[in-house]
Nucleic acid binder design. Structure first.
Lengths: 202, 202
DNA sequence: GTATTTGCTTGACGATGTCTAGATGCGGCA
DNA sequence: TGCCGCATCTAGACATCGTCAAGCAAATAC
């Protein structure tokens, strides 16, 4: 009885810490994610999280890794529904922005190098790299360079930058009312921008 | 006389606090900017800054405001050197990225809404808005909408997003080695991306 | 010449991340 | 069965942080 509780309790505690972290982040932003509050919410002492994670950054790295996995899923499943390369490209950008709008705090976390130094967390880094390869594969054939081993990434970076900048500006409220108030309105407007962009790259 | 000394002394402390804040930020990132360390470096007690700024955010707002002024200057002077609309557009994007690479921490600060809520700082907000109007004016004539009072901002947002995304991804190291190691290399590569983008909008 | 304001200091409070040092209970081994 | 070691977790302490409150000296106002 106690054994069972304890054994399953281990995973419970670790999972509970992660769940509490995600909750806190989504409720009050990245700044609200404190070790002690996480522990409090997970119902353990303020030091218990240090048994499962080396420090605060290790928790963030795990959350960021999960974020990259989700972003990958968003993009891949959107691409799967598209037929030609142009629509794949567009669907990818739309999925990118949609993910950002649906998971603003995780998105911020994923793209702030001072929050998580990915080079210190190979697992999360691998998940990130897998993400970054999606546009390369979708757009790869469009590279103007004949050298396959060293393709010209310019179009890939331009596309990715557009989607990333749009997502970021939306998230940080820098586009004001130009793109609407609700998430739905903004997503539609964002898709218009992406469509405009894609139009010019056919 | 005394009045004059006092007045300049007052400004000294205020200016010293701002200078120390900027230094700290540039040395150790946004996280290194603490009220107490700022005060220490400015040679005053830990409470002195509260005479000039309501709280930490007020200092950040002032720094962000200065950042927007600089970004405006970067863009406007770059545009001034260009002749036609296409080169203006390109010069603007290049200036945007150059500013970000030259002032990474201020750039981060400027575009993180949880750091500075611009709606609470009208001065900084005005400086930001003036910045955001630059692309509108440069690209304004290209709007497809005939309605001048409500022009179609899609091309403006696409252009801005591209530059912003590129700057952000570069700053956060998400483009890895694809664009070189040094700031100079990255700036050149970034300009290539911007050129590619502009090419398609002629 | 006293009262008020300005500019700054000192001290305190609660909160945080993390180090160190226990406590508690389990599995393996004698 | 009894002991050891390890995993899991708690509790306490420390330095640091942002900021509130109170005080003090000098300049200014009346």
């Amino acid at each position: 009885m106690t054994t069972l509780t304890r054994a399953s309790g281990k995973d419970d505690v670790r999972a509970g810490i992660l769940r509490a972290s995600l909750e806190l982040m989504n409720e009050g932003g990245l700044g609200a994610l404190s070790m002690r509050e996480v522990a409090r919410r997970a119902g353990v002492s303020h030091q218990a999280p240090y048994h499962y994670f080396q420090d605060r950054e290790a928790i963030l790295a795990e959350l960021a890794g999960e974020g990259f996995e989700q972003l990958y899923d968003y993009m891949v499943s959107a691409i799967g529904l598209a037929r030609d390369r142009a629509s794949k490209n567009r669907a990818m950008g739309e999925a990118y922005v949609r993910f950002a709008l649906n998971n603003p705090e995780v998105f911020r976390l994923m793209f702030r190098c001072e929050m998580v130094d990915l080079s210190r967390y190979p697992d999360a880094k691998a998940k990130a790299d897998r993400c970054f390869n999606v546009p390369v594969e979708v757009l790869g054939a469009s590279g103007t360079s004949a050298d396959k081993s060293n393709p010209d990434l310019t179009p890939v970076i331009a596309t990715w930058s557009m989607a990333h900048g749009l997502a970021t500006l939306l998230l940080e409220g820098k586009l004001g009312q130009s793109l609407g108030e609700t998430n739905d309105q903004r997503e539609i407007a964002a898709n218009r921008v992406i469509a405009f962009f894609s139009e010019h790259f056919k």
